[in-house]
Amino acid sequence: MARAGLTADRVTLAGAELADEAGFDQVTMSQVARRLGVKDASLYTHVRGLDDLRGRIALLAADEKTIRIAEATAGLAGKDALVAFADAWREYAAAHPGRYMATQLPLKIDPELAANAPGPRRAVELTYGMLRGYGLAEPDLTDAVRLLRSTFHGFVALEAAGGFAHERSPQDSWVRALDALHTALTHWPSPRREAREAREGDPT
């Protein structure tokens, strides 16, 4: 019999806390059950199994990270929005390494559960909204999103792994990287823009 008060949300939070402490790859049904003081079988009343639990952790983390980014970027545009967005991303990854990793992995998530989760959808809206401030449209928007994600995730992953051994402060490099991203976004090499400029510069 499941312990009184146990819910899917409580099981998910316990899994998320374990992920931050031990690593997302260490999250198992047995470890979460031990953390909650129940038998493994009790968890299956609330989650379908390990894939379901890990998917729920990813959705929880996506929601938390999105809220931080939304609060940080409210009322901002251009470089200010970019920096606030990036800083909130990095701060969440540092504060919740296991949960953050869950948002970066391909997981088996119940489609119905994912459809009702606001985090991932809101994250897309925030990212595209911020980039539209640079005058970007598809397909440049998608390319820019991938550039930002690659830069942010690559930096925080290397930082978490102790990959920056040079004496220069990672914070200084982070600031310069955001300067470079702002310049790249401001002068984005759009094929349509280049074609238009080529036509305008053609004397014939």
Rank of each mutant, 00 (worst) to 15 (best):
K108H: 15
A157E: 11
L113F: 08
Q26C: 15
R54I: 00
V124G: 08
T142V: 12
P120H: 07
A16G: 02
R149Y: 10
A70I: 07
A180R: 09
L147H: 04
Q26K: 13
T186L: 04
L6Y: 00
A19R: 02
E125N: 10
L185E: 05
P139S: 02
Y134P: 04
D40M: 08
L147G: 05
E125R: 13
G163F: 07
D80K: 13
R196I: 12
L60K: 05
G37Q: 01
R68F: 14
T12I: 06
S30M: 06
G49D: 08
R99T: 05
L178I: 07
A86N: 04
A58W: 05
N116T: 06
P118M: 03
G119P: 11
A14S: 10
L131Y: 00
A157Y: 12
L82N: 06
T186G: 03
L53F: 00
S30Y: 05
H46E: 00
L43Q: 00
Q104F: 08
D110K: 01
T183N: 08
E194C: 08
R176I: 15
L50Q: 06
W89V: 04
G98C: 06
A117V: 09
A180Y: 11
E21T: 15
G163P: 05
L131C: 06
G78P: 02
E21R: 14
L148K: 11
A19D: 09
V11W: 02
T186R: 07
A123I: 09
L105K: 14
E138W: 13
Q31R: 12
T66H: 12
S42Y: 04
P118V: 02
A19H: 03
R146N: 15
H166V: 11
T151Q: 11
P189K: 05
L126W: 06
I67D: 12
A102F: 05
Q104K: 11
R196M: 13
Q104P: 10
T186V: 01
G55R: 01
K79T: 08
T103I: 04
A195G: 13
V32Y: 02
V27T: 02
G15Q: 03
V83A: 02
A2L: 01
P139A: 06
L43D: 00
A33P: 09
A95S: 11
L36T: 01
A2F: 02
T73I: 15
A160D: 07
S42R: 01
Y134E: 04
H166A: 12
A123F: 14
D9F: 01
L59W: 05
R34D: 05
E125T: 14
A22F: 03
Q104E: 10
P120C: 10
G162C: 05
D51P: 13
A19G: 12
R56G: 03
E112W: 13
D172K: 04
H153A: 13
D63Q: 12
D172S: 08
A2C: 04
Y92R: 01
A95F: 14
